[in-house]
Amino acid sequence: MARELAKSSSNLNDIVYSGRPRNEEPHVKKTTKKKSEKIEYIVRVDLDELKIDDEEFDDLQSLYQLFDLDKDGILNFKEYEKLLRCLGYRLGEEQARLLATSVSVDKSHYSVSFNEFLKLISMQQASEPDEETLVEMFASFDKEDVGMIPETLIKQLMGSKDDINEEDIHEMLEEYFRLAQIKGIKTGRPDGIPQKAPETPPPGAGSKTRRSSKAPSRKSVLSGGEDTSQLSISKGEERWIDYREFAAMLQQ
């Protein structure tokens, strides 16, 4: 009977995860104590190599379990998409598939095992700047060394990236100003910064609309490729941002 049940379970997995190897090793260990079944994920990756500490591992495991409804250590594509949204990723279906193929053996149905999920998180973290790097980048625009830069400059820095849209930028900034109000952080023009008349923007400025809704993380939108050295600071009345606090918020 047990053999038939195991065979039936194996056949079911072949149907649900047909893109995965038929002889794939199990992803969970099941134990029964006092009529209660306990599920434990089998970890086959090196957490130290992935730079995932014990606390982060526990958080990632708990999050993964929320979407692993059948407790088999594998998420189907729909479950995987929901997990990505929970992590703050706003990807189209094709983008989500491409991300899955970077770690998953399932190249046709894009299922993601728990170990593959850990690899995915590690890859994303490795591609993102740390807090110190962000502060140094912001500080390069702080010519008066006041520890603050204008909101307009932050918008320009973020808007220079193709993987974030205006709505994402707005939400991020409003979250900062909400936290600034709670913490009592000033958002007005810093002392020592002269008030200057606003410049007239060139024809067509601001007309470009970004369509991408990808947001792998809040901090990643400021990393990589684009040359931001020529970005200008708008001279009108506006809110100012403590970039050390902002960088710390992006790391959360």
Rank of each mutant, 00 (worst) to 15 (best):
A100N: 11
L75S: 09
F67L: 05
Q95A: 13
F67K: 04
D70E: 07
D106G: 08
K82M: 08
L66P: 00
Q95W: 06
L99Y: 08
Q65N: 02
C86P: 00
I74M: 13
E79L: 01
G73K: 11
L66Y: 01
K78Q: 11
K71E: 03
V105I: 07
L99S: 08
E94F: 12
E93V: 05
N76V: 12
L75M: 06
G88V: 10
K78H: 04
T101I: 12
E79K: 07
L98F: 13
Y89W: 11
E79R: 07
I74L: 13
K82L: 11
Y80T: 00
D68I: 02
L84T: 04
F77C: 05
L99N: 10
Q65T: 13
L99A: 12
C86G: 00
R90I: 08
A96G: 15
K71P: 02
L99Q: 10
Y80Q: 03
D106A: 09
I74D: 01
C86R: 15
L66F: 02
K71Y: 00
L98W: 14
R85S: 09
L83Q: 08
F77L: 00
L84Y: 05
L84D: 09
C86F: 15
L69W: 02
K82H: 06
V105D: 08
L99H: 08
D72F: 02
E81A: 09
V105S: 08
D68E: 04
Q65S: 12
D70L: 02
S102W: 08
S104T: 13
L69A: 12
F77D: 00
G88P: 09
A100S: 15
E94W: 14
D70N: 15
S104N: 12
L84V: 09
E93A: 11
L84A: 07
L98S: 14
S104Q: 07
I74N: 09
R97L: 01
G92V: 01
R90E: 14
I74K: 15
A96C: 08
F77K: 14
L99E: 13
D106K: 14
E94I: 12
Q95I: 06
N76K: 12
R97F: 04
S102I: 00
C86W: 07
E79S: 14
D72K: 08
S102E: 10
K82N: 13
F67H: 05
Q65K: 13
L99D: 03
Y89E: 06
K82S: 11
L75W: 08
S104L: 07
E79T: 06
Y80A: 05
L83W: 12
D72R: 15
D72G: 06
V105N: 09
L69T: 07
V103D: 05
G73S: 09
D72Q: 05
Q65Y: 02
L98Y: 15
F67C: 03
L69M: 10
Y64Q: 04
A100H: 03
G73F: 14
D72Y: 07
Q95Y: 03
Y80P: 01
Y64R: 01
A96N: 06
I74F: 13
R97K: 15
K71G: 00
Q95R: 02
L87W: 02
